[in-house]
Nucleic acid binder design. Structure first.
Lengths: 149, 149
DNA sequence: ATATAATAGTACTAACTAGTAATAATGTCA
DNA sequence: TGACATTATTACTAGTTAGTACTATTATAT
């Protein structure tokens, strides 16, 4: 985005980096979203499904932390996943506040059939732009950025 | 996120990078969102307001491209900004399909009073994690990634 | 020890906002 | 003038957030 005004030399560099961060993820996500849409899933739904697929049973609170989301948000997305029969929930015996979520056989089959291709899509997007060393550098810088927040 | 399963050496590296990309932006955005929320703005609203503040009059279609959004989406966010009196719209004389958007004096005053601090916040977040050279490298890698999509 | 109050943890509801797909309106050009 | 392209809106679905309710834990008083 062409900017009419400068907000300082260093600030302009940061703004530029931030715009690139935002735009690159937006573009990748929009491809992912379209691809998942053809398979009747949204990105937030896929995120929760993936957590349960790879990590087993989890509570709403654990999912909230993993996805950097909020509890109310998870409740809604979980409701939509449950109505599709992809996950199920069991109230915890030890603590009646807690609701344990688990992927169903159908959900697991879905993930089995799409996850590999999803990874291939993503890999293709990154490989189209960067070599492996660059991807590693990017990863390391982003990790530092994330951990500082 | 600990992953139980590997999807290939190179694939795991890409997935890791993608998770870092997603998480770093999520964390930064959640701070921005909270800060803007105190000023009665959402992030999408701020994005449109910023475009009009820095670039002058723009059509819905131009904003759509700048923000990598979709027309229907812009219409909704524009409606919310108009009802707050921060922007106004004028139908184009040359082409009656086109709606020209412009920031109001009130909108401009709002941006004048918050944009500098917004830049300072963002700069602070990046500087807490990375030095200027690292930010430049990050920016360059992300730009390549974005342009390849 | 037991009862009660205060605090923390966990998830849900409702109102709002955004995002998407289908549609309408206008313009362009053969 | 009819077919196609462009531009924006409408209507529907989903996600997000703030506020609320419920359960558990800890502290305090009797």
């Amino acid at each position: 985005m062409k900017r009419a005004k400068s907000y300082g030399r260093h600030e302009d560099i940061v703004l530029r980096a931030h715009i690139e961060l935002s735009r690159s993820l937006t573009k990748i996500r929009s491809k992912e979203t379209a691809w998942l849409g053809d398979r009747d899933l949204t990105l937030p739904q896929f995120g929760i499904l993936e957590s349960l697929y790879h990590l087993g049973k989890l509570s709403v609170g654990q999912i909230t932390k993993l996805t950097l989301s909020t509890p109310g948000n998870i409740t809604v997305v979980v409701k939509n996943l449950e109505s599709k029969g992809l996950i199920k929930s069991i109230p915890s015996d030890e603590d009646r506040r807690i609701k344990i979520l688990e992927i169903t056989e159908e959900g697991s089959d879905t993930m089995k059939s799409i996850f590999h291709e999803h990874v291939a899509n993503l890999t293709g997007m990154y490989d189209a732009a960067l070599n492996e060393e660059e991807i590693q550098i990017l990863s390391r810088l982003l990790r530092k950025l994330e951990k500082a927040q």
